[in-house]
Every structure is written in C-alpha cells, then in structure tokens.
C-alpha cells in the first residue's frame, strides 16, 4: 500500500495588492495557482522525486505534504489519514511524528543560538519524550562524532550542517522524509557524501523519501519514480530509466536536452525557446504550448489530462496520440 497518497492537490495564493491600493487603483484581486490538480502516490520505502524549474511548485507541494501549508483543494493522506481534515488529536500526533523535512539551506535551517544536541533532540523533547544520548548516537550515525553535540552550528561546514539536519530528521523515527533540494547548496563532492548518507539511511531505517530537486542527474540517481512539474502541474511521471531513455513530454525532452553534460565537449545545441510564463496568467490549453516545438492547434485550445502511456503518465496531446 502507498504510504502517501496525493489527490488533486491544488494551492492558490492570493497575490493581490493591499486592499487600499486595490480600491484606489481599481485593480481586481489576483490569484496565483502555484500547484494545480496534482495526484500521485508514494509507495512505502521508495523515493519519489519531483523535478521542475524555479517556480514550478515543488516546494509548495512539499510544504503541503508535511502540513506546513493547507491545500486549497484536494488532499494528502499519509497512512490513510488526512492531516487537513482529521480531528482526532492522537491520530494527528501519530502522523506528525511520522513526517520530517530536510531543507535546502543548511545555514538557515539550524537555529544558530542552539547547541547541536538541543537541535537534534527537539523533535523528541517537544513531544515530552526522553532523549538522553540520542543526539550522540544520531551524530555518529550520520558520520559526525558524539563530541560535536556540544558545538554550535557555525562551527560546521555546509555539508556537515546538512548531516546535522539529517540527524535531526531521524530523531523522531519518521517513516517519511520530505527533502527540499537537500544538496542544491553543496559542492558536488560534498553532495556525493550527503546523497550516499541518505541512501544508506533509507535502507537501514526503511525510510520513504519525497525528494525535491531541480538537478536531473541527482534525481536520476536517487529516485524510484520521478514526477516532472511545469507551472504547478504534473506533466510527466515515469521511472528514471523510462524518463531518461525515452522522455515522452516535450518539456521533459527540452529539460534533458538543455542540461549541460559532462561528456558534452563542445556540444552545440539549439537552446530552448522562451522562458517560463507568468504563473498568475498562464497560457491557455497546455501551458507549455508557446515554447513547444511539437505543438498542434489543439494544444492551445484544450488542456491535456495526465494519462497513462505505456509505463508512464503524460499530459501531452501529441504523446497521447490524440491530435
């Protein structure tokens, strides 16, 4: 059974100007749909990766999954419980302690005034649990030393801080960890260390990851299943092999083509056209059609739904063979 099930998840932000400005300048209210009708499942003990460019809604989905943001529509069920509508406090508590999150910026995600021990143990202590020796044990588990527990975050490098974040995330023995670009701020050699650590811990503790990244090579290495987001919508979902060997959606193809290659010496590619459109006023039909090299008339008129094509799910008229 799936540990996480996401159904028609949608999040709309009100980005209107302040009330007074609207009245004076006669502006209407403005809404930004950051995530729109996203559905996917994450089976237990697997890694589901979300990729997409800046502003595609990756972090917003991550925050809704862990319960930091309420969805506008749709919902997230974890172990069959939907945090947004559940009323039983015990059940909420049990789901809460099953979820943890690792953030992108290792400098902002640790409270600079707290000792490492207190940071790591907080998830347990906050629930009134006993945490003697916990921090020391976890620090060794993530490749630091027990004596680091007495230090402050500023005494560590970026990679070491991210290890501390991992240790903290493990403290409450969660089942699901949402990782929002956990290695984007790190150098490749440090990234390798952190990614290896995360894979090891996954096997050891039977963790499930929702892994958010914009780096395709990292995603290919880590994921069991990959969802590609464009302007808040899932445009393709596939296994890494299928996605990288035979991408179906023109946007995925464009991303793969544009990503610089380590073996692409002197590669001359025609760079992709255009930029991501304004999310407040997205294009009609398939949101990708103004940049799409394969677009047909139907693309600007009707929005393609996410449909199963072979092993993958794709939202593209051409890929679905329905033009």
């Amino acid at each position: 059974m799936s540990l996480v099930s996401i159904q028609n998840l949608t999040r709309v932000f009100d980005v209107s100007k302040p009330w007074l400005n609207r009245v004076i300048e006669r502006l209407p209210k403005r809404y930004l749909t950051a995530v729109s009708d996203v559905s996917f499942d994450i089976p237990a003990k697997t890694t589901y990766a979300l990729v997409g460019e800046s502003g595609s809604g990756k972090s917003t989905i991550g925050k809704m999954v862990v319960g930091l943001l309420p969805p506008s529509e749709g919902g997230v069920t974890i172990n069959g419980i939907d945090l947004a509508i559940e009323t039983d406090d015990d059940k909420i508590e049990s789901v809460r302690s099953d979820i943890q999150m690792i953030f992108q910026d290792p400098y902002a995600s640790l409270n600079p005034r707290w000792r490492v021990r207190d940071i790591i143990q907080e998830p347990v202590v906050a629930r009134g649990g006993k945490a003697t020796g916990l921090a020391e044990r976890l620090l060794e588990q993530v490749g630091l030393t027990a004596s680091d527990a007495d230090k402050f975050p500023h005494e560590f490098s970026g990679g070491q801080r991210q290890r501390i974040c991992v240790a903290r995330a493990l403290a409450s023995e969660p089942k699901l960890i949402v990782c929002d670009e956990p290695t984007s701020a790190l150098d490749v050699s440090v990234q390798a260390q952190v990614l290896n650590l995360m894979s090891d811990l996954k096997d050891e503790f039977g963790l499930t990851y929702l892994f958010i990244s914009h780096d395709l090579t990292v995603v290919q290495h880590m994921a069991d299943r990959i969802g590609v987001l464009y302007l808040g919508r899932l445009v393709e979902e596939a296994s890494p092999d299928a996605l990288f060997d035979a991408p179906q959606h023109p946007y995925t193809q464009m991303l793969l083509e544009a990503a610089p290659r380590m073996d692409g010496f002197g590669r001359e590619v025609e760079p992709p056209k255009g930029e991501i459109p304004d999310p407040i006023d997205p294009p009609s039909g398939c949101a990708f059609h103004p940049r799409c090299p394969m677009a047909v008339a139907k693309c600007s008129a009707e929005r393609p739904a996410l449909k199963t094509v072979g092993e993958s799910r794709v939202a593209c008229w051409v890929a679905q063979g329905d033009t």
Binding site: L68, I99, Q104, A126, R127
Partner: peptide, 26 residues
C-alpha cells in the same frame, strides 16, 4: 522566514514556544 522556524512548526511547536525559544535568542 528562515527554515529553522519552519522546522520547529513542522514538529508541532506552539507559536509561543517558537517565539520564546527560537526567535527571541536570535
């Protein structure tokens, strides 16, 4: 807006605890 405050919210800390224990010292 820093992530350590998000992390504290995530584990269900009350606004009072976050203000007093996390933000105040900073």
């Amino acid at each position: 807006s820093k992530e350590y405050v998000q992390a504290a919210k995530l584990i269900g800390r009350t606004p009072f605890a976050i203000m007093l224990r996390h933000i105040l010292p900073n």
